[in-house]
Design a protein around this nucleic acid. Structure first.
Length: 433
RNA sequence: GGCGCUAUCGUCUAGCCUGGCCUAGGACGUCAGCUUCUCAAGCUGAAGACACGGGUUCAAAUCCCGUUAGCGCUACCA
């Protein structure tokens, strides 16, 4: 039975690297009908915080990574003590007393060679000469990372330890402990690291690290998952858009790369846009509505959902992140239009009173206020005025949306509605006495 | 410093195990064009890589050795 675990420590948020490790573990479990266990490594009582734990759990849930079991190291002090006593009894560990009289349990490292067969990297050999005797139980009575890790993996029957590259050097220390304790050794797979832009470690400076930040920026869990999946893994061909269901079918740990990968926000954005385009506009609207409420663009229990779905459709293809919608569609929700100064200078400097006035009149007299009729009335007007359509389209767009960019003008007019359109047009018509 | 890991376009990668099908494929990004009321989206095209040096071989991106560079670990943190 395949049993894997993801073991975050609640001393920080769930970040990109952790999420990728969790994803690969989860995928490996799913692909092999195994179990995915979440272990909270909270032995560091000083740095572990409840809010971090909550954030990690929430982020995993948001990503759709569900755990079959969960356990906390802070509740297993007794286990660690028992195992340490066992090593003390059979002479594989000793007690060291500090000047203050505190006692620590130390593991004796005998000189020898340790071989591990990594599922991703193949055989790696270490010499225990380079490993010092290891502290098992600290003088405050808590277990050290390597000891707790082995104790937990062994007693929860973890079959495969899939974790970050940074743990390779811990592996020989842990193998020694498995053997001393008489436990069978799990299979190891070390995932390459995810680097920040420029090659260094992923950090705040090189981009957001917390999963929750990506959620707040309006990334879709599906898009982020697909992007993460492609960091250091590929199905072996050219396919890139792989949803989670297909990923379970295709995932094979043998196809994990050995080299570290650099996180690329541009590609993440592209990927997210792919998923936004694929998603049903109604579902997308459900996710966008909270953002609009937050901006006070709409009022709770008092908005036209159908209209919002239509507006979402208007922008869907051009959204990299959900939050883009609130920025680009603001003119549909704000009474007082904010006009981009540069756009105003470029398109509204000249007097368009006559043209705007005519168009407002035509819209007013339209029997059917639909997109086709709006466009027809506009085309007729420019023909009569003997001007090019775009000469008038751009200024009107700026007058109505405050921007030079946006969806098709006639759709904009339709969804803005007759009255608001007229009002925004007429603001540019100089009154003559 | 010691130990370990890694090395294909700027980035993510396919190919490497099982040498010839590789004048190295795809994607993001960049640039150009098409479309068009703008911006996206879409479509078409372009530029762009086997880190270096030695082997082995009829033949090497692929196998071997070395060099260089990058990264990780080297805690009574996890």
């Amino acid at each position: 039975m395949v049993r894997v675990r993801f073991a975050p420590s609640p001393t920080g948020n769930l970040h990109i690297g952790g999420a990728r490790t969790a994803l690969f573990n989860w995928l490996f479990a799913k692909a092999n009908q195994g179990k995915f266990i979440l272990r909270i490594e909270d032995t560091d009582q000083l740095r572990s915080k409840k809010e971090y734990l909550d954030e990690i759990l929430l982020s995993l849930e948001w990503l759709g990574i569900k755990w079959d079991e969960i356990n906390h190291q802070s509740e297993k002090f007794k286990l660690y003590k028992e195992l340490a006593d066992k090593l003390l009894k059979n002479g594989k560990a000793y007690i060291e007393r500090s000047d203050q009289g505190d006692e620590a349990v130390i593991f004796k490292v005998e000189p020898r060679k340790i071989k591990i067969n990594d599922l991703i990297r193949g055989e790696i050999e270490f010499d225990s000469d380079s490993i010092k005797d290891q502290v098992l139980i600290k003088s405050d009575g808590t277990a050290t990372y390597n000891f707790a890790c082995v104790a937990d993996d062994a007693t929860t029957d973890i079959s495969h330890v899939i974790r970050g590259d940074d743990h390779i050097s811990n592996t020989p220390k842990q193998v020694l402990l498995y053997e001393a304790l008489g436990f069978s050794i799990p299979k190891f797979a070390h995932l390459p690291l995810i680097l920040g832009k420029g090659g260094g470690r992923l950090s705040k400076r090189t981009g957001a690290t917390a999963i929750s930040e990506y959620r707040n920026m309006g990334y879709l869990a599906s898009g982020l998952i697909n992007y993460l999946l492609l960091l250091s893994w590929s199905p072996g061909g050219d396919q890139e858009i792989i949803d989670i269901k297909e990923a379970i079918k295709l995932f094979d740990i043998k196809n994990v790369n050995k080299a570290a990968a650099t996180f690329d926000l541009d590609k993440l954005k592209w990927m997210n846009n792919q998923y936004i385009k694929k998603q049903d506009a109604g579902e997308l609207a459900e996710k966008i509505i909270p953002l609009l409420l937050e901006k006070k663009y709409i009022e709770k229990d008092n908005f036209d959902k159908v209209r919002i779905v239509s507006l979402v459709k208007l922008f869907q293809a051009r959204l990299s992140v959900l939050n883009d919608f609130a920025d680009w569609a603001d003119f549909f929700f704000q009474q007082d239009l904010k006009i981009d100064p540069a756009a105003q200078v470029k398109f509204l400097s000249q007097d368009l009173s006559r043209e705007f006035g005519f168009f407002a009149e035509r819209l007013d007299s339209l029997e059917e206020f639909d997109i086709i009729s709006i466009e027809k009335s506009f085309r007729d007007l420019v023909k009569e005025l003997n001007i090019q359509a775009k000469v008038l389209i751009h200024p009107i767009r700026v007058a109505l949306t405050g921007k030079t960019i946006g969806p098709g003008l006639f759709e904009v007019i339709y969804y803005l509605g007759r009255e608001l359109t007229k009002k925004r047009l007429l603001q540019w018509v100089k009154k003559e006495d």
